[in-house]
């Protein structure tokens, strides 16, 4: 790996930290703009209120409060919930939820990408045939049907009518009960990856280097898997980040429908219960995950693609 790549990764890392800091700042300002404080409970005495204010630093200047907020964030202390679980620390509310959400998200990305790539390859290789049309049809369905509708259909079909999977999330069967939500959540990924793979693959198959590879007398399998697929997959990495973001948004509704105890369903609950503090915390967690994913994908791309990884040499005549 060369120096410019290391520099790029370093720069990317710094950018991520700065972005996250700006987000924290915005969230903090939002929080200050929210009406009331966690402690405007009539039953509290003035002395108790002062004590609590002191504990959470609400008597200090705004600047100091922000500093304290960041410090607490770094320690994993997100403050307390207003209404869902009154005065309980949010970190406790989060508990194992983050893990479940990330697991189901990853499952969906992996499943969706694999199915999408396969569909796309079939469509590209059988370009302008019935297979291409079927694949395109699936993509259009995937894009146009909201994933929660799909989740409902799946739950009714394979949870109730043919009861293979639990209808609501069962923590004693974490894998089995995550299968339907994973499939539902991956529809958009499947559709978009398939469409993108198809167009990339068609372009690659049409390229000069594929013609040269063909002129070498290589067989079809080598042509597709050794020459075409690699170049197609590299470009697919570039659309993964936005896809994952879409997936995170979709997961909130899916979690609620399927009764998954993840942060998505917590978000829905917090919004309905007007629990600002929890909402803001979740916003922070979502942002952090998003920034992290973008960072990983970008770095991955720059490492995998030799055109970026390796700079031009002194290859002149």
């Amino acid at each position: 790996m060369n120096k410019s790549i290391m520099k790029y990764i370093g720069k990317r890392l710094l950018m991520s930290v700065i972005t996250l800091f700006v987000i924290v700042l915005i969230l903090f300002i939002l929080m200050k703009l929210m009406p009331g404080t966690p402690f405007n409970d009539e039953k509290l005495t003035e002395a108790q209120r002062v004590l609590l204010y002191k504990k959470y630093g609400l008597d200090k200047s705004v600047f100091e409060q922000f500093f304290l907020y960041v410090k607490n964030l770094l320690k994993g202390d997100f403050g307390v919930s207003y209404s869902i679980l009154k005065n309980a620390p949010i970190s406790m509310l989060l508990g194992s939820r983050i893990g479940i959400t990330i697991r189901i998200g990853l499952q969906s990305v992996v499943f969706g990408s694999i199915v999408g790539v396969l569909l796309g390859i079939v469509a590209a290789m059988k370009h302008n045939t019935i297979w291409d049309n079927i694949s395109t049809f699936i993509s259009v369905l995937g894009v146009s049907i909201p994933s929660f509708v799909f989740a409902l259909i799946l739950l009714i079909a394979f949870g109730r009518e043919i009861p293979i999977f639990p209808i609501t999330y069962d923590s004693s069967q974490p894998i089995l009960s995550s299968i339907l939500p994973t499939i539902a959540l991956s529809t958009l990924t499947i559709a978009q990856v398939a469409r993108f793979t198809r167009s990339e693959m068609i372009e690659v198959l049409d390229s000069d280097y594929m013609l040269l590879a063909e002129a070498k007398g290589l067989n079809k399998r080598t042509l597709i898997f050794k020459h075409a697929l690699r170049n197609t997959l590299i470009s697919i990495i570039t659309i993964l980040a936005p896809l994952i973001v879409g997936l995170m948004t979709g997961s909130a509704v899916i979690e609620k429908i399927c009764g998954i105890p993840g942060i998505g369903s917590l978000l829905v609950e917090a919004i309905t219960a007007n629990d600002y503090n929890v909402v803001i915390t979740l916003a922070f967690i979502y942002s952090a995950m998003y920034i992290g994913i973008m960072l990983v994908v970008d770095v991955l791309y720059s490492i995998i693609d030799p055109r970026i990884r390796l700079s031009k040499e002194d290859g002149n005549e």
């Binding site: 280097y209 002129a215 007398g217």
Partner: peptide, 28 residues
């Protein structure tokens, strides 16, 4: 096509294309 690939293409008849900038696989 198969016989061509196995016995002729690249083996007994080889070709050089017009544009060297695009005729090599960029990731190999």
């Amino acid at each position: 096509k198969k016989e061509m690939r196995q016995h002729i293409c690249g083996k007994r008849i080889a070709m050089v294309f017009q544009d060297p900038m695009t005729s090599l696989n960029p990731t190999m």
